[in-house]
Design a protein around this nucleic acid. Sequence first.
DNA 1: TTGAAAGCGGTACCAT
DNA 2: ATGGTACCGCTTTCAA
Lengths: 350, 350
Amino acid sequence: MRKVTVYDVAELAGVSIATVSFAFTRPDKVKAETLRNVMAAADQLGYVPSASARGLARGRTGAIGIYSYDYLLDPDHDKPATDTRTPAPDGRLFPLYADEVQRGVQIECRRRGYALMLGGNRASDHLPHVIEVAGRVDGLIAFAGALTDGARRQVTARIPVVELGGLERDDARTVLVDNESGMFDLARHLVEQHGHQRFAYVGELGTEEFKARRRGFERALGAGGITVPDVVPAHAGDDASTLRAVAEILALPQLPDAIVCDTDQSALAAIVALRTAGLRVPDDVAVTGFDGILAGRLATPVLTTVLQPMEQVGRVAVEILAGAIDGRDDAGPALPLTCSLFVGSSCGTH
Amino acid sequence: MRKVTVYDVAELAGVSIATVSFAFTRPDKVKAETLRNVMAAADQLGYVPSASARGLARGRTGAIGIYSYDYLLDPDHDKPATDTRTPAPDGRLFPLYADEVQRGVQIECRRRGYALMLGGNRASDHLPHVIEVAGRVDGLIAFAGALTDGARRQVTARIPVVELGGLERDDARTVLVDNESGMFDLARHLVEQHGHQRFAYVGELGTEEFKARRRGFERALGAGGITVPDVVPAHAGDDASTLRAVAEILALPQLPDAIVCDTDQSALAAIVALRTAGLRVPDDVAVTGFDGILAGRLATPVLTTVLQPMEQVGRVAVEILAGAIDGRDDAGPALPLTCSLFVGSSCGTH
DNA sequence: TTGAAAGCGGTACCAT
DNA sequence: ATGGTACCGCTTTCAA
């Protein structure tokens, strides 16, 4: 099954390869009859144009890449598929932030005619892997923190990069979400609507986004004249750390009214931990999250949280990237996208 | 920002482009010092190899494509991202079958160093779109029913294709799942463990997989000497059709003991419909699904269902495809992957 | 409207 | 161990 090329099509249609190319890319520039002949030949032969050749000639691939963490690569998956004996014991249960964003990216790529590339290369190193992806696409979307400074610099020198969240950079565009206001609104809700007074805060300050959440929290409590508790450290994605955080809180002389977690994932883990300890949520203690992942909505009690416009984040990223690729160096920094408060029942009945 | 090429690197390193190429692809074939020079030059320049050029020269792209339905393209998404005012009212709530499979595909691609391509081209027509994808990859994975016969034929003429489910083809390899046994076990469970006698069956017979489920159902009931009910038609993905199906069942002279749905999605919709009608599940009527999607496990009552090895399906697909790409025309038809019964509480307490 | 031909950025064979 | 050099398949001036 030798590959069918423009040459084959051209020969069968009795025209030059240039004409075949034209027929596909600018059908209006070709005589109707010629067009018909070419098309007939093409599909008689089952012609499938090579994206590599096209990309090389055009100087662009027509694809966009997305670079996220390697959370997919848990040790369990480091073996051949056929070794998988157990039926999906689901370590990672729900569509998390990254998945929802990716969904938005997919949708918008599709809408704009871009193909979407999802990594590749088994290289364990970061840089070679990023470069591999970068070599395949016209623009790259990266989650905050997924790119080292070195990688970002090198990639940016070749193609536009859009980062999701994190700090604003000068070499990459950024899709910002107003984490601070989101958390502010949530905390205010807890204070004003539920009258909670004593708080615990579970989370981290590792990235700009988490810092912003924390700021919103502090601001809201400050506004209510309430004492701001320290951060009890926990990493999203590491439920064990949340369990430790909860244990730490339970060891306090007095149980807080509410435990504010900086991600839904740790909030859900916290609820489990509290329940295990014999406490009721929200009766004994309220719990809140941040993100708005599906599991929170399906949980009992329904998790009160801050809804991030995840799909929109992905779509806007593609929009910006497409602009940059086309040389439209779109306006200044886009306004941050807005979060919305999602009131469930985990914050207290009232 | 002109693109940095092998020529630039070669010049800076004081070697030929052939050597640069070697340095990257077979580092061991190059003198240590030369290698060092080349690498230094490469990263000083921020060299990012072009996948297009490489793909063209090598005759393979190093990418695998996945072709699924266009479920992403709901009308809502046919507008620019910035028009999105409402915060994700989540039309499609949970990771469905296709998402879980895609996850498996991603994992295995990653493991094997393949990049994953997700469509592209805004073409509304099926064929041009498939061809676009096919032109970018070394092999294509397609969900059952996603490819028309014509498309499959044309693509297969150029690259290997693996279909997920459906019929066995001679031009494409297929990853089979033993739907029949899965449903058989489920139905037998309902009969033997719960003593259910009167059944309703909600679903369709559109594809081979659905037919297999139905066969399993019929076989189990037959074995139990139980009357096999007709199929009450409902399409997965169209909850309204499930609601109509439930209405139809409720209109029967006598309520069945159990409603067997051929997908989780319709089972969940059915439960909602029944509850709306004032019935309790499973006390008044048992309900079961098929697939093992997350939402079923999070639902109340927990949905009894047949767990498909979804992630494994994706991984096996890549495994087969990789073999075909490398010319290893792996053995005969792989055995179907096995489903497992997942007993929740929607099938009755006992 | 169509054709000839020069790239696009690598790869890999053949020499040296 | 390196360099020279034909391609790989398509796009895109420039002429005819």
